Simulated scan of single mutants.
Amino acid sequence: MYYIGIDGGGTKTETIVSDRFGRCLGSSLISGTNPNFVGADPALANVAEGVRLAMEGLDPLPIAHVAVCIPGMRKYAQEVAAALLLEPLRITAASDTMSTFYGALVKEYGVVLLAGTGSFALGVAPNGKTVTIGGWGPVIGDDGSGQLIAVKALRAAARQFDGTGPPTLLTDKIKDYYNIDSINDLKTKVALDNVSKLTYFVRDAAEAGDLIANVILRETAQNLADLVTDTLYQLEFDAEITDVALAGGLWELGDLLTAPFKALMSGVYPNVRIIPAVFPPVVGALLTAFRADGIRWTKELLDNIGTTIPERKGSK
């Protein structure tokens, strides 16, 4: 019997397949499956394609359970089951909050801060109290997210064009990215699903000393620290030591983001331990599939996952 975890967002989707003992047998990495970004039909098609790629070369054994941990996908659970040719009872459709939590901490309490295309903080206290802050999506706003970094970069370029803001290296980088001659052409180029990669141009501009890019990253660090401190406050973690695990691709920006974030956190909650995620969210999705089918997360199962995660197939 196979267990499958799927973790998707606005720009990429990871799928992992294992047996009931946590021995990972295949995986894939393809483009986005958040229906709010790419649309429902392309999202469902990508989910099916990700599973197909991850199961290439495997024996045709039955699929016991699939956890689909993708924002906005819960209302499409029936359609996911149909796309994968499975009974609906074998599908758990959820957001990426608990899968991120389970993967990052592999325990029942603590705080996970996800910073990727979107952002949120999820905290669980020892008494079971749960608090989630953020995760509102690109329209209402994901503070500290890659999407918001990209939006701020676009705004900076627009202000320079209008003559209401200072010059910034971001302008030329954005023109190159969209293959345009004038920032004014952004009005017909920008869409929700094509801005998040601008995040890395902000990092590059900041490393080159660009003032605006550095301000954007400092504001992002503050936004992310606020997510965690507000979560800890609502959980009433006054002086207790707890782990805060950092998950999501935004931390690949390195010290330009992590250093100010850690400094801000230490000034408010000095006893908090900031740690890297134990596993990526896709493993949290796999753990969600096990849990939904009544399989406990034993040390043997977790060790098997940790030593057998295979190479990814597919492309971004």
Rank of each mutant, 00 (worst) to 15 (best):
E79D: 14
E79M: 13
E79N: 15
E79L: 12
A81R: 07
A81K: 09
A82R: 12
A83K: 12
A83S: 13
L84T: 10
L85E: 14
E87M: 14
E87W: 12
P88C: 07
P88S: 06
R90H: 15
R90M: 14
I91W: 10
I91L: 12
I91Q: 06
T92E: 05
A93E: 12
A94E: 14
S95P: 05
D96N: 12
D96C: 05
T97D: 01
M98S: 09
T100M: 03
T100N: 09
A104D: 05
A104E: 02
A104T: 04
L105E: 04
L105M: 08
L105F: 02
L105P: 02
V106T: 10
V106R: 08
K107D: 15
K107I: 06
K107C: 10
E108K: 05
E108V: 02
E108T: 07
Y109W: 14
G110M: 09
V111P: 02
V111T: 04
V111Q: 01
V112G: 00
V112P: 01
V112Y: 04
V112E: 03
L114N: 02
L114E: 00
A115D: 01
G116D: 02
T117V: 06
T117S: 06
T117M: 07
S119D: 03
A121S: 12
A121V: 07
L122I: 03
G123Q: 04
G123F: 05
A125Y: 12
P126A: 14
P126V: 12
N127W: 08
N127Y: 04
N127M: 09
G128D: 01
G128W: 08
K129Y: 06
K129T: 11
T130C: 07
T130H: 00
V131S: 00
V131L: 03
T132P: 02
T132K: 11
T132M: 10
I133F: 09
G135H: 03
G135K: 02
W136G: 06
P138I: 11
P138W: 14
P138G: 10
V139A: 14
V139M: 15
V139E: 15
I140Q: 11
G141F: 12
D143H: 14
D143R: 14
G144M: 10
G144S: 10
G144W: 04
G144F: 08
S145W: 02
G146A: 11
G146V: 02
G146P: 06
Q147Y: 15
I149H: 02
V151C: 13
V151W: 06
K152G: 07
K152H: 15
L154Q: 07
R155V: 11
R155Q: 15
A156C: 12
A156Q: 05
